Simulated scan of single mutants.
Amino acid sequence: MPSCKALFLPEGISDHYPTKVVLNEEYKTKKGFQFCNVWTKHSKFLPIVQEGWKAHIEDGMMYQVVRKLKLLKKKLRVLHVEEFQNIVSEANANRGKLKHAQMQLQRYPYSIDCQQRDS
């Protein structure tokens, strides 16, 4: 069992104390599947979904659904790598830039530099 510690945070508006558990060891886990809405606008998306959903799988209905979703996930990951490799990291970087620009505007609301900055 890895060593860990629990942090008890302020209760806020609730009568419960939120608890944050911090593990001191790093675990390598497989990154979870993350669906990107922009995929739906790509010309290959609908054919991939249709092909994946038409796959013939023998077994119970729930197993068929789970198996089809797993197959579909693999094909969507390939689409992501081919067409949208860095979209999530770029979006996160842009969110960070936006947050920084908003903080600068709050600090210096009359600064023309802050108001006209592109990046």
Rank of each mutant, 00 (worst) to 15 (best):
E58L: 10
L71T: 13
E25N: 10
T19P: 09
Q115L: 02
S14L: 15
D59G: 10
K28D: 13
A93V: 03
V49E: 02
L79G: 04
V65E: 11
E90W: 02
M103W: 00
L71I: 15
R67A: 12
K28P: 13
F84M: 05
S111C: 06
L7A: 11
L69K: 15
L9E: 07
I48P: 10
K68L: 11
C114S: 01
H56P: 09
D15F: 13
Q116C: 02
A101C: 05
Q34A: 10
I57A: 05
I57Q: 02
K30F: 06
N24H: 15
Q104K: 03
D59V: 03
E51Q: 12
P47R: 01
K70A: 09
L9W: 06
N24A: 08
Q102D: 00
E25R: 12
S43I: 12
Q64L: 09
P47W: 02
Q64T: 13
H80R: 00
V88D: 12
D59P: 08
P10A: 00
L71D: 15
F8R: 06
A91F: 01
G32V: 14
I13P: 12
K68P: 14
H16A: 08
L71E: 14
T29Q: 11
R67C: 08
C36P: 08
K30P: 07
F45C: 08
P47C: 04
A6I: 10
G52Y: 06
M62F: 12
G60H: 08
L105H: 01
Y110T: 08
Y27K: 07
V49K: 01
Q102G: 00
I87N: 09
Q50S: 11
G52H: 05
T40S: 11
Q102P: 00
K5E: 13
K41D: 15
A93I: 04
P10I: 00
E82Q: 09
M62E: 15
E90Y: 04
K70D: 15
P109I: 00
C114V: 00
S14N: 15
R77C: 07
L69R: 15
Q85N: 02
G52V: 04
E90V: 08
P18N: 03
K28A: 13
M103T: 05
L79Y: 05
I13L: 07
K74G: 07
T19N: 06
D113H: 05
K31W: 13
T29H: 11
Q116R: 00
K99F: 03
H56W: 14
Q64P: 14
V21C: 10
A93L: 02
K54Q: 14
E90D: 14
A91V: 04
P109H: 01
Y63I: 06
Q102N: 00
Q102Y: 01
N92G: 08
A93W: 02
F8M: 06
N92K: 10
N37I: 07
Q64D: 13
H80A: 00
L23H: 12
L105K: 05
H100P: 02
H100M: 01
L69P: 14
N37V: 07
K54A: 14
L105D: 01
K30D: 12
S111I: 04
V21I: 14
N37M: 05
L79S: 04
